[in-house]
Design a protein around this nucleic acid. Structure first.
Length: 397
DNA sequence: CCTCCACTGGAAACCTAGGCTC
DNA sequence: GAGCCTAGGTTTCCAGTGGAGG
């Protein structure tokens, strides 16, 4: 053991650091320029420019798949706008509705940017949605605030909770004068407009902008630029960058994934004490990303859901609802936790399916009824390892 | 072609933990 | 303190159903 540690330290000492600026490959890094997004950047800037004269800009809707630069372009323009305007009554708010998870918390997150006076703050729970909206509007009106609200992953909000908030926002109009509220919606889903009230839609999409996926060539250029800023010269060879671009971009031209992959490959190379990133590092990084994704997804699950997942993993060739429920009930007794109903288990299985951790599809077995055919989609080892860190699962295994 | 199993999945009601106003 | 609101997770109830075996 101490031998191993010595070896790790020796490598760390000898291997010169590969990174000069790790942040250039971090997910929230806003680069000094955004390649292949000039038209979009210009369009967003043009739409929001009236703010500098104190006028309300049009609402704006941005479409495009994940990692196509929507958020980056928006942040880029907002940052410039902030320095340019230098005006305390200008508020640039950014809320990711998927992370906020729910109408109420979306509003609460938004309210944080407005700096409500004390006594008028938004508590974690307890207020009617309408009351929260009123408080926000009140604040904007009395303080003459000029507000741009960016709603990232707006399709998620609409799909799960409807367009009530958007309705309130878009119709706020003269209620807020002399302040105003302009909305920039960012959507991953090109079809999300279908679920919207036509009045909301026409107001939301005064301006629209589509972000096409990056091509592999474009990804390569982007990576080259970022790598130049992040690594010491000759760490990331053209071949390495090509491979990262190809692996991440082959499916949907997702720049975020490509950049993550390159960063992690760099970390792997550094740990191994290599002078440059080779193919093996990238392969390893790709595998690590997958494990991390799964690990992260499992860790944040409630105990009951973990128990169900564990029960699923006990069946190697897949199972069905009835059989699983039996195994799950026994497990719960052994762990000393509450046992949920079969109806609930069925619902949770649906969630796990959406998360991509489990495949649960309904099949009919004729006379022998209908059930869900359930199969674990992740490696049993990763699951067992992650769960073994959970105190509630000490009694299992 | 019909039956009938073992569930599915919608709907509504209930519970907990928070907060409001009067 | 009463009576009302919220979000989220859960239970209860139940009508509905795909298709192998009759």
């Amino acid at each position: 053991m101490s031998r191993e540690i010595d070896e790790i330290f020796r490598r760390a000492k000898e291997g010169r650091p590969l990174f000069v600026n790790r942040d250039a490959l971090s997910p929230d890094f806003v680069p000094p320029r955004l390649p292949f997004r000039d038209p979009q950047t210009r369009a967003v800037a043009q739409t929001l420019a009236p703010i500098l004269r104190g006028a309300k800009p049009s609402n704006l809707l941005l479409y495009g798949k994940t990692g196509t630069g929507k958020t980056a372009v928006t942040n880029y323009v907002l940052e410039r706008l902030k320095t340019e305007a230098n005006n305390p009554s200008l508020v640039l708010a950014y809320v990711n509705t998927r992370l906020a998870d729910g109408e109420y918390r979306t509003l609460a997150d938004f309210a944080r940017f407005l700096d409500l006076s004390k006594g008028k703050q938004i508590p974690l729970t307890g207020l009617a949605i309408g009351e929260v909206v009123d408080r926000i509007f009140e604040n904007i009106r009395t303080n003459k605030k000029k507000v741009v609200l960016v709603l990232d992953e707006i399709d998620y909000l609409v799909k799960l909770f409807g367009d009530d908030i958007l309705y309130a926002f878009t119709r706020s109009g003269n209620k807020l004068a002399p302040g105003f509220l302009a909305i920039v919606g960012i959507s991953n889903d090109l079809k999300f407009k279908e679920g919207l009230d036509p009045r909301v839609l026409s107001s939301m999409s005064e301006e629209e902008l589509v972000f096409p996926p990056y091509t592999v060539d474009e990804l390569r250029e982007i990576l080259k630029e970022r790598a130049g800023a992040a690594f010491r010269p000759s760490v990331a060879s053209a071949a390495a960058i090509n491979l990262c671009a190809a692996m991440a971009g082959s499916e949907h031209g997702d720049a975020r994934r490509a950049i993550d992959l390159l960063r992690i490959a760099g970390e792997v190379a550094e740990r191994e004490g290599l002078g440059e990133i080779d193919e093996a590092c990238i392969k390893q990084a790709s595998a690590k990303m997958e494990v991390d994704r799964v690990d992260e997804a499992i860790r944040s699950l409630p105990v009951q859901t973990k128990a169900i997942l564990y029960a699923v993993s006990r069946f190697d060739g897949g199972t069905n609802t009835g059989e699983l429920y039996l195994a799950y009930s026994t497990l719960c007794k052994r762990l000393g936790i509450e046992t949920l109903t079969q109806r609930r288990l069925s619902g949770i299985l649906g969630d796990l399916d959406l998360l991509g951790l489990v495949e649960a599809s309904v099949v009919s077995k004729g006379r022998r009824g209908r059930t869900k055919k359930i199969q674990l989609l992740i490696s049993k080892d990763t699951l067992t390892k992650t769960l073994s860190e959970d105190v509630a699962f000490e009694a299992a295994t």
